[in-house]
Simulated scan of single mutants.
Amino acid sequence: MPVFMVERQFSDRLEAAGETAAAINRINDEAGVRWLKSFLSSDKRKTFCLYEADDVASIRTAAIRAGLPADAIMELSGTLAPDGSFAPM
Score class of each variant (00 low, 15 high):
30 E>S: 10
43 D>F: 06
61 T>I: 02
16 A>V: 11
54 D>W: 03
75 E>M: 08
27 I>S: 06
68 L>M: 13
76 L>W: 07
72 A>P: 03
3 V>M: 13
40 L>V: 14
72 A>Y: 13
11 S>E: 15
31 A>E: 12
16 A>L: 13
17 A>D: 14
79 T>L: 14
38 S>R: 02
9 Q>F: 14
64 I>P: 07
53 A>L: 07
59 I>R: 00
73 I>N: 05
6 V>H: 01
10 F>V: 00
45 R>S: 02
54 D>E: 14
61 T>S: 15
35 W>H: 14
9 Q>M: 13
23 A>R: 15
85 S>G: 11
51 Y>C: 01
61 T>W: 05
73 I>W: 02
32 G>I: 07
42 S>P: 12
29 D>L: 11
48 F>R: 08
88 P>V: 06
3 V>W: 02
10 F>N: 00
5 M>C: 15
88 P>F: 05
21 A>Q: 09
24 I>W: 03
65 R>S: 10
44 K>H: 13
38 S>I: 06
84 G>V: 09
66 A>H: 00
27 I>H: 04
76 L>Y: 08
68 L>P: 03
45 R>C: 10
59 I>G: 01
87 A>P: 02
81 A>L: 01
65 R>Y: 05
77 S>H: 06
49 C>E: 00
73 I>Y: 09
67 G>Q: 10
82 P>F: 08
